[in-house]
Write a protein that binds this DNA or RNA. Structure first.
Lengths: 201, 201, 201, 201
DNA sequence: GATGAATGAGGGTTCATTCAT
DNA sequence: AATGAATGAACCCTCATTCAT
């Protein structure tokens, strides 16, 4: 469903993928370029033939995720025809990125955001804003339809936080799979209508 | 409501408070001992009269939060007499720590957990486990009463993530205050309506 | 006679040789890695491309001496065919190391032994023990033949001490050369006269 | 026989004695003023009410030993009436200092000589020279009488080295006591006349 | 005399980055 | 492209020394 972000045939992509794996494991600040090299199978000096700096790696990894996520979200929302389905798509896409083939890069994007220099962060902000703008639309609609009962802006932050945090505790392959986690998340914020999710007004 | 974790009269406490502030701002790995010294108004060498190492600072900050949070949570739960009130207490306490006088230390506890060495982490695990055990009880009860509809374990992780993440975006003093944020969170996961939630007022 | 311990063509060996020179001059504890770097012509940070730590340098220097001395002692003893010649070989080898091309490293081995961590010392003990075991054999034999009159264990310690101490006062190139010092040492402990020592000539 | 160098009633003397003990155990460079304080039972800051600096401690310890040794040597030589007895006195005094009540301070004098700044060393040189001048006289006489067969200057250095080195391996209280060690040393360098020590000429 | 917080220089070590090979 | 020796700044920490209390 989610296309891989990095092409294993391409040397630079292998580098980015390995670095993302390492950053996910140890955090950007703690990972050293030597370790990145080891993860990819080259010496640290050789990294700099592919990237300008360590931070450049971080930037490129994040850039790929943002671009891809936005595209996949748009597509998923286009294919969803009810407010509830769109709400589910929001969660589904984010969880798919956080725990599918792009897991490392996505975790880095979410958890090491502050490690990026302000300048570089500004470059990515447009994509990030566009992504969350779609969230906002969906949540505003969901609230209008009585699916959720919190302010859309607040709901967006809370929901995104809840999902981002899953990278600390959730591992697919256990008794709970990705679909199950999606269901549980929906159950938490928008329980099946007719029981408790009935509109207030 | 939340008592300050650090005594401004005590030199070591001032150090811990300053370090927590800095760690919150820059992250543990990025903060240097020279910066900690500057934050407290002493030279870096003098830090080591009060603590054994940089990591020791992190440990002590975290230890204080865990101990205090557990105590406050127990007390708040004792005073809450309905499942809904206890659910609200869970959220209230965590948000009070994340955005009240203990905000820095709490953010450090949540976000820099991995920066602590495995040995040191093990020491704190007992307190952490006790804290979440109380969450589990409350959420299990809340589900039995129909207040929430997700698996308690999953709900705990999602809710905790949503709240922990607020330290990245929420600042009290704006149009939304702590009580408002608590309400919104409750509205998101346990809307006060229909058959599933006892009325708030 | 004594082969150089360090290969000037090899970068790490140059480092070890320079460090040994410095340790001999100032003592291990007093020498700084920055000074070692200066002695070798590189910056202190570059040292750590060749060795793991400052103590590692000390260890490797000592290891080389121990290994080489043992080898040379065995060979010298094999070529000596009388008890007196073997006694002379003991002294000759030790003085050759203390004042020949391996002088720095040997002085470090003898005088900075305690600076090595207990763990590292244990690794070298096997070689050291083997070396002194040969001394013991030779001295026991010398006593049986009436060449010396002290207990072999005590004689070994006294003689070794007397020789080790020469690195504080003896410099070859003066009126007394290495052969002369060897003769004098023999004259002190086993005078070539009367019934107790076989004639030298 | 050897009077204690430090008066336990005097605070500064207790400090010097404790420091000597520590320097003997760890070496001057490795011992810290904190450890010296701990050895004496005060905090490091308080040391500086009694001495000007860490090096000052070293100097004073050494000064005491040199002065006392010289006095005791003179007295012992005065009481010895044969060349052989005077030779024995040389050894006896040095071993008494190295392993009697002044053991710590003497070991420090011999083994940490280089740790003293050149200026301070110059101050002590007069005493040291006087001490060794007596050795020279005795050894010159002993050689003239055929007791030893090495050059007096070389013999002095070798013998002194052999004895100084005993602080690394000899511990009184074992099967070999101080008198025994003295005998063994004499046996090594000047075996009983009539057997091998007969004059050559 | 003793304390202990503070200093500030310097310790060993790490690390992103460069560059000749 | 890759290597690996070298850089140099910065890192955490130690330590002799000072000084107000």
């Amino acid at each position: 469903m989610i296309a891989p972000l990095f092409d294993p045939e391409n040397a630079r992509d292998r580098l980015l993928a390995g670095a993302a794996r390492l950053f996910h494991r140890k955090g950007y600040a703690t990972a050293t370029v030597r370790e990145i090299g080891a993860e990819v199978g080259i010496l640290s000096g050789s990294l700099f033939h592919h990237v300008r700096s360590k931070e450049d790696i971080l930037f490129q990894v994040m850039d790929r995720v943002i671009t891809a996520m936005l595209g996949d979200l748009e597509q998923a929302l286009d294919q969803a025809d009810t407010p509830h389905a769109r709400l589910r798509a929001l969660i589904q896409i984010e969880l798919a990125y956080l725990h599918g083939p792009a897991a490392d890069a996505t975790a880095v994007l979410f958890h090491d955001w502050r490690a990026l220099s302000e300048d570089r962060r500004a470059v990515l902000l447009a994509g990030r804003d566009a992504y969350f703008a779609r969230w906002h639309q969906v949540l505003t609609d969901a609230r209008a339809k009585g699916l959720i009962h919190a302010d859309p802006m607040v709901a967006r932050q809370l929901l995104h936080g809840a999902l981002a945090w899953t990278s600390y505790w959730f591992r697919p392959g256990g008794t709970l799979d990705l679909a199950g986690l999606t269901d549980q998340t929906l159950a938490l914020i928008a329980p099946p209508t007719g029981i408790s999710g009935a509109p207030v007004s």
